[in-house]
Design a protein around this nucleic acid. Structure first.
Lengths: 344, 344
DNA sequence: TGTTAGCACTCATTTAGTTAGAGTGCTAAC
DNA sequence: GTTAGCACTCTAACTAAATGAGTGCTAACA
């Protein structure tokens, strides 16, 4: 049995209808809905075939059909028509150009949640540059030293270091000079053990401070921590009976969003079937995050330039308005991408 | 009509029973539950009185009674016996002494949520000292300057400032010296306009940089931003039918927790009736945050020393195990308070 | 005067039974 | 290959009756 054009039309009609109503779709509905001019009986025959092929499912004997994961996948891959969506508010948010990246991300993800009515998330663009630009030590008081670590891309980290004995301004100046001549421009794997011991020897009695500083540098440089995830509209999960009827599952999902467990992986694994648009769709069990078997996830990768890539996406029920969501994500993605182009 | 001892005993029995079962409590139950040796008929008379006085409510004619807000309040104020609770895990979390305050707070709030099974939140200790310790300008590259602002209490803020023209190392050194001799030790309201203009004049051609730096200082010094709230266990809201049956309301609550709207106020308003334990209970409509009319909120103020006060608390249904919650909060509060004492 | 037994009454919840309707699969005719 | 027709299935909605917990009130009792 193979998929012919008529079967595809019928499948499309079933899915469209099911997305709209959420009710199983019967043969009579399709008979009227499509312009194939076929009677319900004929449709029934075709539907039996589609069920055999695994595209649709019958919840119980005397009900209509609903799409299976395979059915959704077919729809998304071949029949979806992404609606172009103008996010008018977006421009405001982006043009205001909040100087804190964090605020911008929060704004965008909030916008996405409001527009789609699905739980939304965004990852901060991850910095692939992990080189140290410079370190700046300053004396805070007799027991505390401040280490400011500036990475390539002007990402800044602070660390307060406790000192055993007070350090004079001159010593600090000397340490600063020493650290920067040796370390600046380095990435973590370039900083060898011998360099560290060398520095310690040079520092003499202050070697423990140097050790602490290098620890701080190492921590700051390893970029993992930067994979921060912001969420918005988690409460939308409750709007979809498929997800909220089982409050056990809904609670688990909400918890996942609050604790951000596993969301990084969700947002970072790239599906092989990426079609170049940067949009990816994961349907039901295609999704490997625990508790999301009944969800679909749609993500888009955006790029702020300089290799800074982040991901923005939504999590919703399998019965979701894919066309709208993909359209919205495309629009947001291009908005974010443009941000960089304009900037330069 | 006044509250005598017997009425109080009966009220207590009603509330205790209702907290356990969640079902309206009838006269017969009380007759057996208490050791007053009264028949159900007598209890009924007393219950009629209690209802007239506003301590209990009858959901419908032929049902038992449930406590009103006023009833809960009476219970909490005069009859509650906080169970002493040992949070064994807590020591681990606190002793590990995560060097980042943020991680510690997240750990504590997670613990609270796990222990109580209620939605939990914690505010970072707010720094009441808003004096500037020092400013440190560093050159990042030709167009960017880094301003590190250190406040009393060693709270640190960074700000990248764009410069119109490249600044030499000497200029930056000079600006640093100038800023610190003038500004260090100052609070915002001590920094007068004339001082600022004075600085600008001194800076000559670099006055715009000075303006930017002072803006950054002003922003950093105003402590508002420090009132960060961390949450955990929001999903517990779904565990309590009183809150989750109406998924509209539950969604709103979850949203409040995600966006942290209004939670700062919730955690910072101190009830007049504070009894010196630092524990506060808000029942139902006593609570002024939107959407929390059906909740009770219990908070505890902790102090990390040096005037750094924060608040930790839970939000749950009015029918909550007050004894347990208050016990847990007391335990956590004293754990946090001790943290500081040990430290010094 | 406070307490209790008894009784009629109320009302939410449960249970069972019925009905209505949507949809199917299959067969036979077109 | 398509369609009309029919028997069948199963859910959802509705109705009616039974259940039972709990009340308020009255009258009797100590």
């Amino acid at each position: 049995m193979e998929m012919d054009e008529r079967k595809a039309t019928i499948l499309q009609a079933i899915i469209r209808n099911y997305l709209e109503t959420g009710e199983p779709v019967g043969s009579r509905t399709i008979s009227k809905y499509t312009d194939l001019n076929l009677s319900s009986a004929t449709i029934r025959n075709e539907m039996a075939d589609l069920e055999e092929m695994g595209y649709i499912i019958q919840p119980h004997t005397s009900a209509g059909r609903i799409p299976s994961d395979k059915g959704y996948r077919f729809y998304v891959d071949t029949m979806m028509e992404a609606k172009d969506r103008e996010i008018s508010e977006m421009k405001k948010v982006l043009i205001e150009r909040q100087d804190k990246l964090e605020d911008m991300l929060k704004g965008v993800v909030k916008l996405l949640a409001r527009d789609t009515q699905y739980a939304s998330l965004i990852t901060a663009p991850s910095i692939s540059m992990n080189k140290l630009k410079f370190v700046q030590l300053s004396r805070i008081d007799d027991e505390h030293l401040l280490a400011v670590i500036v990475k390539e891309g002007n990402v800044i980290r602070n660390k307060v270091i406790e000192t055993i004995e007070p350090l004079s301004e001159e010593t600090i100046l000397k340490l600063n000079l020493m650290l920067n001549t040796q370390l600046s421009g380095m990435s973590m794997d370039e900083i060898s053990l011998s360099m560290i011991t060398g520095l310690k020897v040079q520092a003499g009695s202050h070697s423990s401070v140097i050790a602490d500083v290098i620890d701080a540098v190492a921590e700051a440089i390893s970029a993992e921590e930067d994979l921060k995830v912001y969420t918005s509209g988690t409460n939308n999960i409750l709007k979809y009976p498929e997800l909220s009827d089982n409050s056990e599952k809904a609670g688990h999902l909400i918890n996942t969003f609050e604790e951000k467990e596993g969301l990084e992986e969700l947002m970072s694994t790239e599906l092989s079937g990426d079609d170049g648009t940067g949009i990816q769709v994961y349907i039901g069990s295609e999704n490997k995050v625990e508790g999301m078997e009944d969800c679909s996830v749609v993500t888009a990768t955006y790029e702020l330039g300089g290799g800074m890539k982040g991901t923005i996406g939504i999590v919703g029920p399998k019965r979701m308005d894919y066309d709208k969501v993909v359209g919205t994500l495309k629009s947001l993605k291009s908005g974010l991408d443009d941000l960089y182009k304009k900037d330069n």
